[in-house]
């Protein structure tokens, strides 16, 4: 039996937690809970980054961890929470696909993601290469969540979760992106969040609702 050091086992446990949370988000319809799940996902990500930084002595990973903590665990969930309260969106309406079908599709996607990760893991030489599959699965599941939801708020949460997956993927494949890129991505997410916040208010002004099917009327009539 292959011996895996304790720290790496912990990282793997975090990865498993991420995947579990992704599934939870896929099936959860209460928007406030979604925000909590997102924050928890961020916290696990932060923990995994921290453990990996400790294990491999990559100092810039500490900065990444701090960034994740401040942005994804504290600031953005707080912002989302505030938006939810101000806009009064607590429930997403019935998703486009019912949750059991979504779950089954999600399982297929996880299988696909693991199949995809194998050749990449073989090329990679990092300590946490076994978790690449999970990272890809998180990305794709978040994407799927964006597809199946109707409310703009849930889609934004899906978007942020996708970013978590990307971040985790970069960390497990190559110990994170270069710091400049990481900072840039963090800033992008922040700005996107702010823009979307403004956008929500605009949608509500226009349609008295955050339901995205109202935007369908913007389509050009043939």
């Amino acid at each position: 039996m292959v011996h895996i050091p304790l720290l790496l086992q912990l990282v793997n446990a975090c990865a498993a937690g991420l995947l579990l949370l992704s599934f939870a988000m896929l099936s959860q319809r209460r928007v406030v809970t979604l925000v909590y799940l997102l924050a928890t996902q961020g916290a696990l990500l932060c923990l995994a980054t921290f453990l990996l930084a400790w294990r491999t002595n990559q100092h810039h990973l500490y900065i990444s961890a701090a960034l994740t903590l401040s942005l994804k665990v504290l600031f953005l969930p707080w912002l989302l929470h505030r938006l939810i309260r101000r806009l009064g969106v607590y429930w997403d309406t019935e998703p486009l696909l019912n949750s059991s079908v979504t779950m089954l599709l999600g399982l297929l996607i996880v299988v696909f993601a693991f199949g995809l990760a194998q050749p990449i893991a073989a090329l990679s030489s990092t300590a946490a290469r076994s978790t690449i599959g999970i990272a890809i699965a998180v990305i794709l599941l978040a994407f799927m969540m964006m597809i199946t939801r109707r409310k703009a708020m849930s889609q934004v949460i899906g978007f942020l979760s996708m970013e978590n997956g990307l971040f985790f993927g970069a960390m497990s494949a190559t110990y994170g992106m270069p710091l400049v890129v990481e900072l840039g991505v963090a800033l992008d997410v922040l700005v996107a969040m702010l823009v979307l916040g403004v956008f929500f208010f605009q949608i509500r002004e226009q349609f008295d609702s955050l339901d995205l099917h109202h935007l369908e009327s913007l389509k050009e009539k043939p």
Binding site: L140, F143, M144, M146, E216, K219
Partner: peptide, 28 residues
């Protein structure tokens, strides 16, 4: 081509999603 333009964000996301899956499957 306008048949593709459904006006629903979910559909557009689905296009990206399927494209992504197909491309990933191709590199696999």
């Amino acid at each position: 081509v306008t048949v593709l333009q459904q006006g629903r964000i979910s559909t557009y996301l689905l296009y990206s999603f399927v494209t992504l899956l197909v491309l990933l499957a191709l590199v696999l």
